[in-house]
Design a protein around this nucleic acid. Sequence first.
DNA 1: ACGATAGTTAACGAGTCTGTTAAACAACTG
DNA 2: CAGTTGTTTAACAGACTCGTTAACTATCGT
Lengths: 121, 121
Amino acid sequence: MTVTAPDRFDVVFAALADPTRRSIVRRLADGEATVLELAEPFPISLPAISRHLKVLEHAGLISRGRDGQRRPCQLRPEPLIEIAAWAEHTRAAWEHRLDRLDAHLRRSSDHTPSPPTPEEP
Amino acid sequence: MTVTAPDRFDVVFAALADPTRRSIVRRLADGEATVLELAEPFPISLPAISRHLKVLEHAGLISRGRDGQRRPCQLRPEPLIEIAAWAEHTRAAWEHRLDRLDAHLRRSSDHTPSPPTPEEP
DNA sequence: ACGATAGTTAACGAGTCTGTTAAACAACTG
DNA sequence: CAGTTGTTTAACAGACTCGTTAACTATCGT
């Protein structure tokens, strides 16, 4: 257990920070696959894949079922939606701030030599 | 020198995997800020902040200028757009695959049970 | 029950974060 | 010039990550 509460985004971004895991996620977007099928394109050992899958599962990016001795993996898109929304929201805030700055500069072009960085009241 | 070419997304996702750095990014969406201003909300030392900023800069998420002895930081939204697009694209592929599966099931059986994802009218 | 197939856990090493403190560098100020 | 403010670099410790191999569990097929 970690002392500080682990943000949900921490584990999702960290999971996607690895190229192997992103590749697995991308692969699972095309449909369910077993561990061996997922491992096939990569030059690394099966235990390494197994741990990557555990990381993805822990991040909520995949879920695993049971089919005999196989453990098929499925993509769970919710975290993808969340991080896309976060990135988009942050970008939108940035753009909105630029708009406000632009409007401010437009207004104060006559007199009122205000500082270049307008603080929000 | 790194042996394997480091994917651009690796460094962006890794940069955003840290809550302090995400918080800084979020803060910069509201406008330019100096290192001291960015450090103020956090209980960690200034060198730690400086290194976080270096990581963000290396990921292309911020750029830094010069204003006397200050080094003001600015958000660069391009990487945010890229990862949002990646997540959305992956999610879209997943959804499309479900649509195809649904259509296939519809075609290949007469008495189709109620589909689990009621998306089509 | 046996062996083959599918996957996980254990133990370990190399390398990479993240934080610290102390010291340095850079630019403004008196 | 000296002192102060803003920021970075150096050196180091602790934790985590990613890979390995060896051994283990679980399920299928005969």
